[in-house]
Design a protein around this nucleic acid. Structure first.
Lengths: 235, 235
DNA sequence: CGCCACACGTCAATGCTGTTGTCATAAGCG
DNA sequence: CGCTTATGACAACAGCATTGACGTGTGGCG
C-alpha cells in the first residue's frame, strides 16, 4: 500500500466526514486525550476514537501511521502542558519542588500517554527548555557543576519514574486497580504479629499511606539531602 | 461458568497434555518469564504461551483467572528472585542500600517483565516477605512507626519506579534506544551558551552522566535524608 | 484391585482489537 | 467547468482474551 499519511503542512482539502466533523491532527490528538481522560486508559482504541470523532476508524490512519505514532503526538502535547504557566520564585528548593509536582501532575492527568512518554528522551523544544530551567535553578543556588548534574539527573529521573509508575497504576483496568488497593486492607491488614510482627505493628499506618503516591515524600527527602550537601559546599 | 481455577495446594491429578508436558503454576510462570525474556513483552500472549508449554491456550485458565492474574504471579516471582540469598548485616543503611540495588538488578535482568510487573501490588508470599524485612530494618534501626512507614513507602516505590523506568529503556528496540542516547551528544552537546547557558556549561558532564541509571545516586540521597532524620529523633 | 467422580486438557465459538486494500466522492486548482 | 487526487468509508483479515461444553484418564476410596 502507498503511504496513507500526508504531512500536516501540505493538507489543503478538508473533507467533512459523514457526520460532519472536519478532521485534523490537532482534533484527533485532542479527542484522544479527552477519551483517555473521560473514560480511562482502556477507552483509547482506534474504533472508539473513530466513533468519538464521528468518523470511520480507518480515517485516523490518514493522519498517523499507527497507534504508536498517535501516542507520540499525544505525548508531545503532554510535555508542553507540564511546563505551561510555570513561574520561578528564586527559592531553589521551593522551585524544584514545584517543578517536580507539576511534572508528576501533568503526567497523572494522562496516564496512558505518560507510560509511553516518561522514559524517552525526545530532544524536542519543550524538553530542552525544562532541562535548561532545572540546571539553572541548581547552578544559581550555588551547586558546583559536578554536583548539579547528578542531582539534576536524580531529580528528573525520579520525577519521571514516579510519574510513569503512578500513571501505570492509574492506567490499570479499574477492577485490577481496585484489587491492588484492597490488598493492603485485606491481605496485609490481617497478618498476625507472631509471623509478621513489623507489618502487624504498622498495618494501620500502611493501609492509609499506601494508597497515596509516595512521590511527594520521596521528593522532600531528595531535596533535604541536596540542601544538606549544599550547606557543606558553602562551609 | 463455574470457577476454572483450583488453588495450587489442592491440586493432585496432574494430567499430561497431548504433547506430554505436565502443567503447574510454577511451570507456567517460568515459561512466561522465558517467553518475555526471549521475544519481548509483546510475545506474551495466551496463545503463544500455550504453544510454548505444549498445551492448549485455554489450559492456562485452569491455573490463572486471567492474564492479569498471571502477571501478578510473574511479578511475585521477580520479587522472590530479588531476595534470594539476601543476608542482613545489621547496619540499616547498608542493608537498605543492598536491598534497593538487588531489587533494581533483579528487575533489570528481565526488563520486559519488569515493565509489566513493577507497579503491581501482588499480595503474594514473596512480596509480603520483602515488606516485613524492610519494615524490620527500619524499625530496629530506631525509626518510630510514623516515620518508618512513609520512608518504607518512598524507598520501595523509588526502587520499583526506577526499576521499571530503566527496564523500559533497556526494553526499547535497539535503534530507538541508540537514538535516545545519542540525543544527549547530538542535540544537547551542540546548544550554544548564548541561548542555553546552563546546558552548554555542563554538557560534557551531562553526556557521560545521562547514560547511566540515576538510581544509585538517588538511593544514596534518600538514605542520607533518612539518616539525618534518624539523628534528630535520637537527639 | 477395580471403580468412578471429577480435575483438567481440548475444541469451538464470541466479540473484541489494529490494520489495510479498495472504492466513491468532493475539494479546489487550472 | 472539469480533472486530479486527497480523503473518508467500507469490508475484510488476522490475532487477541476469554468461556461454555465435552471427553478423558488419574488417583483416591471402598
Amino acid at each position: 500500500m502507498t503511504e496513507r499519511v500526508v504531512p500536516e503542512p501540505q493538507r489543503r482539502r478538508r473533507k467533512p466526514t459523514k457526520q460532519g466533523t472536519v478532521l485534523s491532527e490537532q482534533v484527533i490528538v485532542a479527542t484522544a486525550l479527552r477519551l483517555i481522560g473521560q473514560h480511562g486508559a482502556a477507552a483509547l482504541t482506534v474504533r472508539r476514537l473513530g466513533a468519538a470523532l464521528g468518523a470511520d476508524p480507518s480515517a485516523v490512519y490518514r493522519y498517523f501511521h499507527n497507534t504508536d505514532d498517535l501516542m507520540l503526538a499525544v505525548a508531545d502535547e503532554l510535555i508542553g502542558r507540564a511546563q505551561h504557566g510555570l513561574e520561578l520564585s528564586g527559592d531553589w528548593r521551593a522551585d524544584l519542588r514545584a517543578i517536580g509536582m507539576r511534572v508528576h501532575a501533568a503526567y497523572q492527568a494522562h496516564p496512558q500517554a505518560a507510560m509511553l512518554a516518561a522514559h524517552r528522551t525526545t530532544g524536542r523544544d519543550n524538553e530542552i527548555r525544562a532541562v535548561e530551567t532545572i540546571l539553572g535553578v541548581l547552578r544559581s543556588a550555588g551547586f558546583p557543576d559536578r554536583e548539579a548534574v547528578p542531582i539534576y539527573h536524580a531529580f528528573i529521573d525520579q520525577a519521571l519514574a514516579f510519574a510513569s509508575q503512578d500513571a501505570a497504576a492509574l492506567a490499570l483496568p479499574a477492577p485490577a486497580r481496585a484489587a491492588d488497593l484492597a490488598v493492603w486492607r485485606v491481605r496485609y491488614g490481617r497478618l498476625g504479629p507472631d509471623t509478621h510482627p513489623n507489618i502487624a505493628a504498622t498495618a494501620h499506618l500502611l493501609i492509609t499511606d499506601m494508597d497515596r503516591s509516595g512521590y511527594p515524600f520521596a521528593l522532600d527527602l531528595l531535596l533535604e539531602a541536596a540542601a544538606a550537601r549544599l550547606a557543606t559546599h558553602r562551609a
